[in-house]
Simulated assay, not measured.
Amino acid sequence: MSFNLNEAALLLIALVIGWLLGLMMSGRGKYRRLWRDEQIAHRQAIKDRDTRIEASNARIAELERQSTGPIGAGTATAVAGAVHGRDDLSRISGVSQAQEVALNEAGYHRYGQIAALNAEQEATLEARLGLKPGTITHEDWRKQADDLAHGRKRGLFG
């Protein structure tokens, strides 16, 4: 009996599949035990995660109870900025929160960077922020940023 190439390939595939199935069946429950152990470990990891979340929520509630007053607008942004080495660019008159995010994405994080803008960079930022040409100059962002950087101005909320 002779086999052509296709028949030989199919026979080989059938033999390999049979061999793999035989190996899986002869493990005497080894793979079933491994699967069960993995399920137990997964359930434990989820339980540990839920415990950590509950502890975090309890700590947040405790801190909120200890708080002396409500958190003002912009406080979270300012704290996050201070932690990450960023100034609160929304303190510049004419810069919204969304524009501050766009400025940060463009690489502007400090008042000094805004104060040091040249005309070409201003035009690029105005296009990126969707502002009319000349808006940054008209609203005097550079002077405001310089004042904020040197502590001469407290900004909109201060």
Rank of each mutant, 00 (worst) to 15 (best):
M1W: 01
L5S: 12
A8K: 00
A9L: 14
L12H: 00
I17E: 00
I17V: 03
I17S: 03
L21V: 04
L21K: 01
G22E: 02
L23H: 01
S26M: 14
G27Y: 13
R28G: 14
G29L: 15
G29I: 15
Y31V: 14
R32N: 13
L34P: 00
L34D: 13
R36P: 00
R36Y: 09
R36G: 08
Q39P: 03
A41Q: 12
H42W: 06
R43Q: 06
Q44R: 14
I46D: 09
K47D: 08
K47R: 13
R49V: 14
R52C: 15
E54A: 07
A55V: 00
N57R: 01
L63T: 05
E64P: 02
R65G: 08
S67Q: 15
P70A: 11
P70D: 10
I71A: 10
I71S: 08
T75C: 11
T75H: 06
T77Y: 08
T77D: 09
T77W: 07
T77I: 12
A78L: 15
A80M: 13
A82P: 00
H84E: 11
G85P: 03
R86K: 14
D87R: 05
I92V: 03
I92A: 00
S96C: 07
E100I: 05
E100D: 03
V101S: 09
V101N: 09
N104K: 10
E105Y: 00
G107W: 04
G107N: 04
G107D: 03
Y108D: 00
Y108G: 02
G112A: 02
Q113R: 04
L117M: 07
Q121E: 10
E122K: 09
A123E: 12
E126I: 04
A127F: 02
A127Y: 02
A127R: 02
R128F: 05
K132E: 15
G134Y: 14
G134L: 13
T135E: 04
T135F: 04
T137I: 06
E139V: 08
K143M: 06
A145E: 03
D146V: 08
L148Y: 11
L148T: 08
L148V: 13
L148F: 13
R152Q: 15
R152H: 15
K153V: 08
G155A: 11
L156I: 14
L156R: 04
